[in-house]
Computed example of a mutant assay.
Amino acid sequence: MRRGKLLAVAMGVAGALALAGCGKNETGQGTAPAAPQVVVSQPLQKNIHEWDEYTGRFTAVEGVEIRARVSGYLTSVNFHDGDLVNKGDLLFIIDPRPYQAALDGAQAAVAQAKSQVTLADRELNRARDLRQTQAVSQSVLDTRSQSLQAAQAGLLAAEAQQRAAALNLEFTQVRAPVTGRVSNHRVSVGNLVSGGSAESTLLTTIVSLDPIYFYFDADQASYLRYQRLNQSGQRQSGRVVQHPVELALPDETGYSHQGKLDFIDNSIDDSTGTIRARAVFDNPDGVLTPGLFGRLRLAGRSEYQGLLVPDSAIGTDQNRRYVMVVGADNKVVMRPVTLGPLIDGLRVVREGLAANERIVTAGLLRVRPGATVAPVEKPLQAGETGAKP
């Protein structure tokens, strides 16, 4: 029995030694692990036009509150709510009869003043003739001259009253001061409206549509960058050149609306740290509406030849960004890089990478600096975000 136990132990030791021998090659050394397979690519070279993106809101170039300029009862509304109206179109009529009567009275006063001037002129001429024969005194001549001047002044006053009455009559017809889209009428026919003061009755509003403004706020860091680029001659200031801009509406994926930058404010808002800017867009079909939000992009710097890599090739080490560069010996080197914006699905690399270097674009988590890899070459294409090994 004891002999059998010894035999079993001996067989177990032999088996263990046999298994240990499996990890040895013919020279007695351990088998090296296979190099991990990764996809490598050279950066894509392209002329890059960088854009800075902002969110803003459309505002009408002209927005007018239509208020009554004379008081009276509203007798007519001559548009449909929400109509497109042209400058000069008749919108409202205020009862003109009292103002027509006032104008008739002013015209009569003018006619009376003219007759006074004619009479005073004749009397002065008669006094001059009589004065030559000493038939009247000089004081009579002076009195007749003063009477003529008074009559002429009265005529001027009457004519001024006539013009004022004509204006009041004209103001009973409320016309569109600009071309645009009218809101709803705020006062119905038959109501008494007041006019001629700061509290005049609001009748409706009109906003112009074509062209249309787009206001947005840029942070002070971007503003300073634009200023530095202007000082270095790389990009002229928006106050000198109307830079092109592109815009997308909330339901659009592409920037299909073309406009231009036409205004930058004169100070930075101390409460937000931003500066207000404005772009202008043509709007012949009226799709762009005041108050509508949109996404605008503005050329951030001059066009340049740059390098693009997929985001899958970029690693993060605390606050640093890096790529893994594969050398001619297939060894991996960590390379810190400075990144830019996303262009056509690829990330701009500003610094740290050469155009002829190979970087790991897929399988980044499998490699470490100094490791040897089995690279699989694959050219990059615009729009790629990464590749599977």
Rank of each mutant, 00 (worst) to 15 (best):
167 L>D: 15
267 S>W: 11
5 K>Y: 14
339 L>H: 00
91 L>W: 07
331 K>T: 04
166 A>D: 05
291 G>D: 00
286 G>L: 02
117 V>Q: 08
310 P>C: 08
13 V>F: 15
199 E>Y: 09
162 Q>K: 03
66 I>L: 01
66 I>T: 05
329 D>G: 04
29 Q>K: 05
82 G>E: 04
51 W>N: 07
163 R>Q: 12
80 H>Y: 10
111 A>T: 12
382 A>I: 09
139 S>R: 08
261 L>K: 09
56 G>D: 00
132 Q>C: 04
349 V>W: 00
75 T>K: 14
13 V>K: 01
330 N>W: 04
175 R>G: 04
281 F>A: 04
255 Y>N: 09
168 N>L: 08
3 R>W: 11
150 A>P: 01
96 P>S: 05
40 V>S: 01
306 G>C: 08
229 L>H: 07
135 A>T: 06
150 A>L: 12
173 Q>Y: 12
314 I>F: 07
62 E>M: 08
280 V>Y: 01
203 L>F: 04
221 A>V: 13
63 G>W: 09
48 I>R: 07
93 I>C: 11
314 I>W: 09
141 L>R: 02
373 V>A: 04
253 T>L: 08
184 N>D: 12
163 R>L: 13
376 V>H: 15
137 S>V: 00
233 G>L: 11
133 T>N: 13
240 V>G: 00
87 K>L: 03
4 G>C: 10
304 Y>E: 11
298 L>P: 05
272 T>Y: 06
98 P>Q: 12
25 N>S: 09
78 N>F: 07
228 R>V: 15
301 R>C: 00
239 R>E: 13
206 I>A: 03
332 V>Y: 00
11 M>N: 07
70 V>L: 00
152 Q>T: 15
370 G>L: 03
100 Q>D: 13
56 G>E: 04
284 P>C: 06
374 A>V: 00
141 L>F: 03
12 G>L: 15
240 V>M: 11
338 T>Q: 11
52 D>Q: 14
172 T>R: 10
96 P>N: 05
30 G>M: 13
240 V>P: 06
228 R>T: 14
66 I>D: 06
284 P>K: 03
111 A>H: 10
300 G>M: 00
163 R>D: 11
129 D>H: 06
324 M>R: 05
115 S>I: 13
5 K>M: 13
308 L>S: 09
268 I>T: 08
265 D>L: 11
309 V>S: 01
19 L>W: 04
109 A>F: 07
74 L>V: 07
168 N>F: 03
121 D>A: 15
131 R>P: 03
91 L>N: 06
264 I>L: 12
157 A>P: 07
92 F>E: 05
8 A>Q: 12
85 V>H: 02
150 A>C: 05
